[in-house]
Measured scan of single mutants.
Amino acid sequence: SASLEDVKTAVLGLLVILQTKLYTLPASHATRVYEMLVSHIQLHYKHSYTLPIASSIRLQAFDFLLLLRADSLHRLGLPNKDGVVRFSPYCVCDYMEPERGSEKKTSGPLSPPTGPPGPAPAGPAVRLGSVPYSLLFRVLLQCLKQESDWKVLKLVLGRLPESLRYKVLIFTSPCSVDQLCSALCSMLSGPKTLERLRGAPEGF
């Protein structure tokens, strides 16, 4: 439990870093931090981490990651405290083949985003970082199938509809809506759902 406290501190630090690096160059920093966060949550489900502190780590990670939004130009952003989304000039939600690297070039400044813009690109060529939603999407499927803490599952179920409104997140990387529907149906009809959940409301 003591070591998990250190892990929790590290994860919180990564969330803060991602919130900053999403809007700064090099964009590969945001890509790497995002991948680290998603990989860490995957390990929770792989090794069945069920301690309360592990659940709190997942809760905080999902609470942040499910706020990711994308505009029509595929640029990622996060809402501010007033709910207004600021889109990044440097990070996009497109999935890119590994051989192309985590970044790609664009020939010049991008068109203005639909929300308040981030800082304008400084040079004639900007390297865009790929932060594909499919990585998070796979972890969300694991959550629906394996999550043991009701608070975490409730958060994910509550945030998913709003995330799905931003269709560009889903359609720019390999996210299977069929698998999502299947996971939701299995969660509702499967007898093991109630068996594994802690803290579920009576009558769920």
Rank of each mutant, 00 (worst) to 15 (best):
residue 136 L to R: 01
residue 29 H to K: 02
residue 170 I to P: 05
residue 56 S to W: 07
residue 168 V to I: 09
residue 153 L to S: 01
residue 49 Y to R: 02
residue 3 S to C: 13
residue 170 I to S: 04
residue 56 S to V: 13
residue 49 Y to M: 03
residue 93 C to K: 03
residue 198 R to V: 10
residue 48 S to F: 11
residue 50 T to D: 14
residue 76 L to W: 06
residue 141 L to F: 03
residue 37 L to P: 00
residue 47 H to Y: 10
residue 42 Q to L: 10
residue 19 Q to G: 07
residue 8 K to A: 11
residue 143 C to M: 04
residue 109 P to S: 13
residue 41 I to E: 00
residue 22 L to T: 03
residue 87 F to Y: 12
residue 133 Y to K: 03
residue 136 L to G: 06
residue 203 G to A: 09
residue 203 G to H: 09
residue 166 Y to H: 11
residue 69 R to N: 04
residue 56 S to T: 11
residue 102 S to C: 14
residue 148 S to G: 13
residue 73 L to P: 03
residue 38 V to Q: 02
residue 171 F to S: 11
residue 152 V to M: 02
residue 178 D to N: 12
residue 117 P to K: 15
residue 85 V to E: 05
residue 188 L to S: 04
residue 110 L to A: 15
residue 127 R to K: 14
residue 56 S to R: 08
residue 11 V to C: 08
residue 76 L to C: 12
residue 27 A to D: 05
residue 111 S to Y: 14
residue 160 L to I: 06
residue 27 A to P: 12
residue 3 S to W: 04
residue 24 T to V: 15
residue 25 L to Q: 15
residue 159 R to W: 03
residue 135 L to H: 13
residue 75 R to E: 03
residue 78 L to R: 05
residue 193 T to P: 10
residue 148 S to Q: 10
residue 156 V to S: 00
residue 158 G to I: 07
residue 52 P to I: 01
residue 157 L to M: 05
residue 134 S to T: 06
residue 97 E to A: 09
residue 200 A to E: 07
residue 14 L to V: 06
residue 10 A to E: 01
residue 30 A to E: 01
residue 56 S to F: 13
residue 167 K to M: 07
residue 128 L to Q: 13
residue 33 V to F: 01
residue 18 L to C: 04
residue 156 V to T: 02
residue 74 H to Y: 04
residue 125 A to T: 12
residue 118 G to P: 12
residue 90 Y to V: 08
residue 128 L to W: 12
residue 107 S to Y: 12
residue 4 L to C: 15
residue 110 L to M: 11
residue 181 C to Q: 05
residue 37 L to W: 00
residue 160 L to P: 00
residue 86 R to G: 06
residue 75 R to K: 06
residue 164 L to P: 00
residue 175 C to V: 05
residue 150 W to G: 01
residue 157 L to S: 01
residue 15 L to A: 11
residue 33 V to R: 00
residue 44 H to C: 00
residue 22 L to W: 03
residue 188 L to N: 01
residue 196 R to G: 06
residue 110 L to I: 12
residue 4 L to N: 12
residue 203 G to L: 05
residue 17 I to N: 03
residue 117 P to G: 10
residue 24 T to R: 15
residue 104 K to D: 15
residue 93 C to H: 02
residue 107 S to G: 13
residue 140 L to T: 11
residue 158 G to C: 10
residue 45 Y to H: 00
residue 172 T to C: 06
residue 82 D to R: 09
residue 26 P to Y: 04
residue 58 R to P: 00
residue 46 K to P: 02
residue 86 R to I: 08
residue 105 K to L: 14
residue 111 S to L: 12
residue 85 V to Q: 06
residue 193 T to I: 13
residue 4 L to I: 07
residue 15 L to P: 10
residue 129 G to R: 07
residue 13 G to S: 03
residue 25 L to H: 15
residue 79 P to F: 05
residue 43 L to V: 11
residue 195 E to C: 09
residue 34 Y to K: 00
residue 175 C to M: 03
residue 19 Q to V: 03
residue 144 L to N: 00
residue 38 V to L: 12
residue 195 E to K: 11
residue 1 S to Y: 06
residue 176 S to C: 06
residue 132 P to Y: 04
residue 23 Y to N: 05
residue 86 R to A: 09
residue 183 A to G: 06
residue 86 R to N: 07
residue 190 G to F: 08
residue 105 K to Q: 09
residue 204 F to A: 06
residue 83 G to V: 03
residue 51 L to I: 07
residue 54 A to S: 09
residue 31 T to H: 07
residue 30 A to M: 05
residue 51 L to K: 01
residue 74 H to K: 07
residue 79 P to G: 05
residue 181 C to A: 10
residue 179 Q to Y: 06
residue 201 P to C: 13
